[in-house]
């Protein structure tokens, strides 16, 4: 079995009195794709956001490729990292948002070039070459000079994927990457993700596309009530769920 890339252990997260995550455990191995399912409001987005430390956990810990996220261990204490170190850790984690969040004032090329230059201190020339390669990979080589608002939703999301890939992350997190898209544009984005899966990119994908999850995921995890209720190969979780709540959820979305 390949090494563990993402390890989430006993993570708790509350917003005020609202307990969203109540002890989440999740393990993702290098090169594996995990589809994260769960009813709306079950904390799927929150889980992705704590993984790259956009939100702080209240209890538990997360590690990426063996490196603790957001903290440094010394003896029996955890020291919170400074912002600069957290930003450096985030360059190991690519994040694709539901609403893309491209930078509207920068061209498509500059959107992809920005992080490698600013965060990884790559020479601009090298970053441009990489960006052009990535844009070709998501099928948008001819849109390098366009501004995001001149693109369709599907094209914007593909740029966002190229932008996330540009920092050469160890893992890619997708938060409902196709939920904001018109139905006929969903396919082009899913195709890009499938291509990434084939090439061995480690990914955690929050999605409501059950068919897609069945096709690309090595593992399906079902989140409800603040915990991972069930986790296993798609054949097991999707076709023969052991938990009542998983069954109830699947009967609604299928």
């Amino acid at each position: 079995m390949s090494q563990v890339m993402v390890d989430v252990r006993g993570v708790h997260k509350s917003f005020g009195a609202l307990k969203v995550l109540r002890g989440v455990d999740l393990t993702v191995r290098a090169g594996e794709v995990t589809a994260l399912l769960g009813p709306s409001g079950s904390g799927k987005s929150t889980l992705l956001r704590v993984i790259n430390h956009l939100e702080k956990v209240n209890r538990g810990w997360i590690s990426i490729d063996g490196e603790l996220i957001g903290y440094r261990r010394s003896g029996d204490r955890l020291y919170e990292l400074r912002e600069r170190d957290i930003l450096r850790q985030r360059t190991h984690i690519g994040f694709v948002f539901q609403h893309f969040h491209l930078f509207p004032h920068l061209t498509v090329l500059d959107n992809v070039v920005e992080a490698p230059v600013a965060a990884l201190r790559r020479p601009r020339k090298e970053a441009v070459a990489t960006a052009e390669r990535l844009l070709a990979r998501v099928g948008l080589a001819d849109k390098a000079g366009a501004y995001p608002r001149q693109l369709s939703g599907g094209q914007q999301q593909r740029v966002a994927i190229a932008r996330a890939l540009a920092i050469e992350p160890k893992v890619l997190l997708f938060d409902e990457p196709t939920s904001a898209l018109d139905p006929e544009l969903v396919g082009e984005v899913l195709d890009v993700i499938k291509d990434l899966a084939r090439s061995g990119t480690t990914m955690i994908i929050v999605t409501h596309e059950i068919g897609f999850a069945r096709e690309v995921a090595d593992t399906v995890a079902f989140l409800d009530g603040g915990v991972v209720v069930e986790q296993g190969p798609p054949g097991a979780v999707l076709d023969a769920p052991r938990h009542e709540r998983t069954r109830a959820f699947l009967s609604k979305v299928l």
Binding site: N52, L54, E83, R84, L87, R88, Q89, R90, T91, I93, F95, F97, H99, H101, L102, F103, P104, H105, E114, A115, A118, A119, L120, R163, A164, I167
Partner: peptide
């Protein structure tokens, strides 16, 4: 979401402000 996207990419704080937030 703009700041969040910049933070998620690991872009340094000052650069987030100068390059992403202020121009917009």
């Amino acid at each position: 979401g703009q700041l969040e996207a910049a933070a998620a990419l690991g872009i340094p704080r000052l650069r987030q402000i100068r390059r992403i937030v202020l121009p917009q």
